[in-house]
Amino acid sequence: MSNTTNVKRTAVASLMDQLRADVTEQKLTPQEELAILEKLKVYGRTVTGSDAIYSSEGIVFLAEIAFRPNNPDSSREALRCLANALYLDRQMVQYFIDAGYVEKASEAYKSENVDDEFLLGRVLFFSTTFAKDDHLINKWANEHHLVENNIAAISRHASAYTAAASTASSSAVPMMQTMALQDTLKLLYTLTTKLSDVSTMLGP
């Protein structure tokens, strides 16, 4: 094992420890917390040496930050960390599912903020695509508004693109909105292939 990997492992563990300590100490400013999460996001783009992220405890702790209501910037950065982890390691998806955070993500997906839609849509796409039990997807749809919120997001995009077309300017639609739509449509595809009775959920 290279010294570089060991240095990275130590750095990632230290950053996670700082965040955990702040749960009780509450000494970090929102900007300091965000800066730590930004570093973790970069480290977490590769699994090697990111042990403190790629574990049950790491995923659950980042999810706790992601679904806190008081600091949206840190919440979104934690979601970025989670999106990397769920994409790179399917076991992390299972940890996220087992801890009950897909339910929270499904309900938070009602947000009309395009950054939230992009990040939550990506996390939900990985969760539904790699879920081992399709019955869980039906639960998320029936009890936690997953399909309803997905369709609402698509409707918002339709309105935005209609408005952009009326101005004859493709630049009227921001790049982030296009990226959010891509992940929202990928999630829709997974839902239509895995749900037991998608026709009644999608409506006429």
Rank of each mutant, 00 (worst) to 15 (best):
M1W: 02
N3T: 14
N3Q: 13
T4D: 14
T10G: 07
T10C: 05
A11K: 13
S14I: 05
S14E: 15
D17W: 03
Q26E: 14
K27H: 11
L28H: 05
P30D: 10
E32D: 14
E33G: 09
L34G: 02
A35R: 09
A35Q: 13
I36G: 01
K41W: 08
V47Y: 08
S55F: 12
E64N: 11
I65F: 04
F67V: 13
R68W: 03
R68C: 08
N70D: 15
N71F: 09
N71M: 07
S74H: 02
R76V: 00
E77G: 00
A78S: 11
R80P: 03
C81A: 10
C81E: 04
L82W: 03
A83E: 10
N84A: 06
D89Y: 10
M92T: 13
M92C: 15
Q94T: 10
Q94H: 11
Y95S: 11
A99T: 02
E107Y: 06
S111Q: 08
S111C: 09
E112L: 10
N113G: 06
V114H: 04
D115V: 13
D116K: 08
E117F: 03
E117Y: 00
E117H: 04
E117L: 04
F118A: 06
L124Q: 03
F125S: 02
S127K: 07
S127F: 03
N142K: 11
E143P: 01
E143F: 08
E143G: 02
A152K: 12
A152G: 00
R156G: 00
H157V: 07
Y161A: 06
A168N: 13
A168V: 06
S170G: 04
A172P: 01
V173E: 09
P174L: 09
M175P: 00
M175W: 01
M175V: 12
M176E: 10
A180P: 01
L185I: 15
L188I: 05
T190R: 11
L191P: 01
L195K: 02
S199F: 12
G203P: 07
G203Q: 09
